[in-house]
Write a protein that binds this DNA or RNA. Structure first.
Lengths: 145, 145
DNA sequence: AAAATAAAAGACAAAAATATCTTTTATTAA
DNA sequence: TTAATAAAAGATATTTTTGTCTTTTATTTT
């Protein structure tokens, strides 16, 4: 199994795509985004609607409409996307799925996974959405294939 | 989303349960295992049949039958269970789901996730199934709830 | 005001993961 | 050699995830 759900993979890729495409005032349409990250258009639309409702990205209807992000939104950490889509179980949950797993009632992997969970959380919290804009614009990083 | 699939969570918990319950020659039935790790009995049965086919655990039918593991099986790393059930995408796959993600064609998170993937793989490869037997027998670790 | 544009929303479909129930097969013990 | 036991296998059901198609709403331009 992968680290993130398919939905979350699309979400991150799409947000990074929007981020670097609209860094200075433009907007980008769902069709361009779907093509740009190689994802099913209408499925992605649902995901972006959700992220929009949650305030992570912005959108406008009509001609010249589309999705965009302001400067403030670019400063948000990747962890917000992940939490919005997949929840916090990757950071907080028990690796073996035990509801009551804790320091006093640990599963066998409780201690071995503590560092790993913290590393994931720290990395996603310390990395902003706008962090990759230059490399994305210069084509050094890929969001499709 | 969780790190492992539900199937894999059950698999690890069940194998650790079998490991410590049969450390010296006993066998344990599917009903006891399912109760012992709080999982759906018949669903777990399928999982164990699969692990048995793959040689990770052993079983016998009939009276006094059940599942068990020999000394050698206890030395296997946890990573074998994970690979048998969830595959290797947790260790090898691209976090953003890109098929061609690599050093020369990296996704934005390629480098950030390199350490994390390695940590997970190392931990699971360095930890044997039998590693938790004492603590499980003494009740210091939990496999249910 | 009408037409064009683009996201939002709704309805539906397919696939995969998870779960349950029944029948069959192998093994043991009486 | 029959009955009992327990895993293996098969069939089916439910839920969740992923994906598609159509209609509606908001906005802009003519």
């Amino acid at each position: 199994m992968a680290i993130f759900s398919k939905t979350c993979e699309y979400a991150i890729r799409a947000v990074l795509f929007i981020a670097h495409k609209t860094a200075l005032g433009n907007r980008v349409g769902i069709k361009d985004i779907a093509t740009g990250i190689d994802s099913p258009e209408h499925f992605l639309a649902k995901i972006l609607q959700d992220l929009s409702r949650k305030g992570l990205i912005s959108s406008n209807k009509g001609p010249n409409g589309g999705f965009y992000m302001d400067a403030l939104a670019l400063e948000r950490p990747l962890s917000e996307i992940v939490e919005a889509v997949d929840g916090d179980s990757l950071f907080k949950g028990c690796a073996l799925g035990l509801k009551q797993c804790s320091e006093v009632n640990p599963c066998p992997l409780h201690n071995e996974f503590k560092d790993i969970r913290n590393n994931i959380q720290r990395m996603l919290s310390d990395t902003t959405i706008g962090n990759f804009n230059e490399e994305l614009m210069s084509g050094l990083l890929s969001l499709k294939k």
